[in-house]
Nucleic acid binder design. Structure first.
Length: 155
DNA sequence: GCCAACGTTGGC
DNA sequence: GCCAACGTTGGC
């Protein structure tokens, strides 16, 4: 089962928001590489939920894909900040998926901690200058991060 | 708020 | 198709 990591600014949409709403469309992605990854997602894929552009950036929980890629409605909405006048309804440029809440970690797995793990060195997330907001995660990497979350819970 | 890194745009 | 200018991301 494939695994992914998706970034969200908690001021805009946090893991607590997802927990409360249970399911939410993941829209507004306007990067082709990220979009292409979203189009590869399958129902049941697990997602590391990452908080970015905040006081403590890091992985904060787990979500699950509950609907595969569909045309992102915000691209056709002139009132949306994600409106894309170049995208045509007959040939939508941008995709969204739907995610479902699975778990919220009791503590943030901080970016610092992720950077210090040798097994995570190949993740785009920890590489300098990388800004990708949706990325695949190797099963081994997913296991390391969820184990970090469990270790923290026990202390 | 700063700024490095990177993606996109648009003139040529 | 090149590439400079510009905009955005995201950690700090």
């Amino acid at each position: 089962m494939p695994f992914w990591l998706m970034k969200s600014e908690p001021d805009v949409f946090s893991i607590a928001d997802l927990q409360r709403k249970r399911r939410e469309a993941w829209d507004g992605v306007r990067n082709y590489q990220a979009r292409n990854y979203m189009r590869q997602m399958a129902v049941g894929d697990e997602v590391l939920f990452y908080h970015s552009s905040c006081a403590q950036p890091g992985v904060v929980g787990i979500a699950r894909i509950s609907r595969t890629a569909f045309p992102d409605p915000t691209q056709f909405d002139p009132g949306s900040e994600y409106f894309d006048p170049g995208s045509k309804p007959e040939d939508p440029r941008w995709s969204a998926v739907e995610v479902e809440f699975l778990a919220s970690f009791p503590e943030v797995i901080a970016l610092d901690a992720l950077k210090s793990m040798p097994g995570l060195a190949e993740m785009p997330l920890v590489k300098r200058g990388n800004r990708l907001s949706v990325m695949p995660v190797e099963p081994e990497q997913f296991a390391i991060i969820t184990a970090m979350a469990r270790t923290r819970t026990k202390r």
